[in-house]
């Protein structure tokens, strides 16, 4: 690897033979991708269109063509439940923020230990960690609820956030382990020779290099927490504490007429924050090693 490094000199990007052919290929690529995008986005577009239709024609009018713009759904949906919908958005935001901080701090610490430190029982604990994500939540929720209920945590955000502060999300620990193991080891060994201890290597060498993994963790924690329904439903009993997914579901009742328009409108509204989070986050995803100056 060291010899590779020495050979790196600015290389002009090789230009392919005929620029015309290249542009044609690029056009074909865009056309293909565009078509794929359209097919993939059809359900999402349908939802947006339906949120702009009067409630009683949603299932009677096919396709994506709108006869008119019905913006009433947004106003009605916003005020349909016990509190204005913004209240649920704020609740979700609080939970999401707590979970992101928790996952970033605790998972990266655990991951550093698993990936870079040599300690007794490393393999065993790693297996235990993976094992913790193999049981489905449905059999854990009742004992968990009993435990949190004894702590008086029901109807607070604590049962949702505290576990994340304690690195119970093994998915992200494993993800970060894989990223750290992909980093060249010479870097921390060089730092160690300079006299840096583990905290410093972790904070000053590893963390900056695993920015893509941290961005991934942030985006996923955001999206998954924002969408997580089951545990939020179980732990948040008072409508004042409801989060977006719990609120969204309370629009629907299969046995009576449902305000689908309002439901779709609020689905669109609740999609915006995670879409924005993704738009912003993906810029950090691509700031990998390639652009952080390590060459």
């Amino acid at each position: 690897m060291t010899d590779l490094k020495e050979r790196v000199t600015p290389v002009p990007i090789t230009v392919e033979a005929a620029p015309v052919r290249r542009r044609g290929r690029s056009l074909a690529k865009h056309a293909g991708l565009g078509l794929l995008t359209l097919v993939m986005l059809y359900p999402v577009l349908w939802m947006v269109v339906s949120s702009l239709r009067p409630n009683n024609v949603i299932f009677r009018s096919p396709g994506l063509i709108l006869d008119g713009l019905e913006t009433r759904n947004y106003g009605e949906g916003w005020n349909a439940l016990a509190s204005p919908f913004g209240h649920y958005l704020v609740n979700s935001a609080i939970v999401v923020l707590g979970c992101i901080i928790g996952n970033l701090v605790s998972c990266s610490m655990a991951a550093y230990a698993f990936a870079r430190l040599d300690f007794t029982g490393r393999k065993l604990w790693f297996a235990v960690m993976l094992g913790t994500i193999m049981l489905p939540i449905h059999v854990l929720i009742v004992p968990q609820y009993i435990a949190f209920s004894n702590l008086g945590w029901i109807n607070t955000f604590l049962p949702l956030i505290v576990p994340k502060l304690l690195a119970t999300d093994a998915f992200f620990v494993f993800l970060m382990v894989q990223f750290i193991r992909g980093l060249p080891k010479e870097l921390d060994e060089a730092a160690r020779i300079d006299g840096a201890g583990h905290p410093r290597i972790f904070a000053q060498v590893i963390l900056p290099l695993m920015l893509p993994a941290l961005a991934t963790t942030t985006i996923f924690t955001f999206i998954w927490t924002w969408n997580d329904f089951f545990s939020q439903l179980i732990y948040l009993t008072d409508p004042d504490m409801y989060t977006v997914p719990v609120a969204l579901r309370s629009f629907v009742d299969a046995t009576v007429s449902t305000s689908w328009g309002s439901m779709f409108a609020m689905s669109v509204v609740s999609l915006l924050p995670i879409f924005l989070a993704f738009l912003i986050g993906q810029r950090y995803l691509v700031k990998g090693i390639a652009t952080t100056g390590i060459k």
Binding site: L233, D238, P239, V246
Partner: peptide
Amino acid sequence: SGEFKEWNGYWDSLATT
């Protein structure tokens, strides 16, 4: 305090509580 749920979630939540 009125706790409203949709049908499926209602029974999961009730059984747990």
